[in-house]
Amino acid sequence: MKLTTIFGAAIAVAGTLIAGSASALDFNGAGASFPAPVYQSWGAKYKEKTGNGLNYQSIGSGGGQNQIINRTVDFGASDAPMESAKLASANLLQFPAVIGSIVATVNIDGIASDQLKLTGPILADIYLGKITKWNDKAIADLNAGVKLPDQAIVPVYRSDSSGTSYVFTSYLAEVSPEWKSKVGAATSVQWPAGAGAKGNEGVAGTVKNTKGGLGYVEFVYAAANKLVVTQLQNKAGKFLAPSVKSFMVAADAADWTGSKDFAASMLNTSGEGAWPIVSATYILLPKNPTNVEASKEVMKFFEWSYGKDGGEIAEKLHYIPLPESVVKRIEAAWKAEVKTPDGKPVF
């Protein structure tokens, strides 16, 4: 009895000490690895400004979803949007944080970056194992004037289940009915051809090591490592080299108002200058936060990140900030949906 009292008192003292020494409020997030660099940069800058620090663990989208469902973190992060039913049952609000894009990288002798032209259906046929040589007629017809070798194409994919694979396979399913019926879209699928490597660095490394290799990586990664990327044909029929501008066009063209839980598709949008494989990465926030202060801080953090400072950091890292209209709708959703136990809006 006495022991428990002493123990309790000790905890109380320790608690005040900890609270006293860290007057700043730290908040925890976990999940997707694709946006981790930008979250971490934002977190560092935000701590400088406010003293409140973000502790983000990049453990993968599935892990982030699990942790927020169990409420072990203040917010979860996921590349693939969660289904509406699951969001409702876990009482979560979903909103996008930042936009990224995926590019194709190749290793063919004599082919420079932005030189080779590919289309979505050709990519699908390569990953289906139907187009197996670089000098296949379908590819050669698009690339008049480019010397293509009689070499086997080695498609490389992400072996770890990832949001990147989810976005890429969603795109292939959108442009190729055969891909949709035979393989489908998910964070990991049963790939009909090629070899798998772990992470962006694994895919990039394998493509670099393998003559005739073809892989898909996030643009952030390709730009930072100066990979040889290809042009892609968009829905309007234009061939484009990947650029932040082309990603922004796609983000603006997405149907934000018509899609539930902000899960707007930016794949294969119809704009003239829109890059075809663009996708948002999402934040999952409890609508009934147990730690109200931390939840409020999460929203304040993202409010700041959507602003000028946050946008600059994102662009420097080759991510694309959200369109302003979307940010307004997200802030409205925060006010309307995230409530304290007695029903008041947290934000």
Binding site: G62, I69, S159, S162, A195
Partner: peptide, 19 residues
């Protein structure tokens, strides 16, 4: 040919396997 082992599959798929 590329393949997979039990251990490698678990390592690859575990982070994205929801509860």
């Amino acid at each position: 040919a590329p393949g997979a082992t039990i251990a490698s599959t678990i390592a690859n798929e575990f982070p994205e396997a929801p509860i």
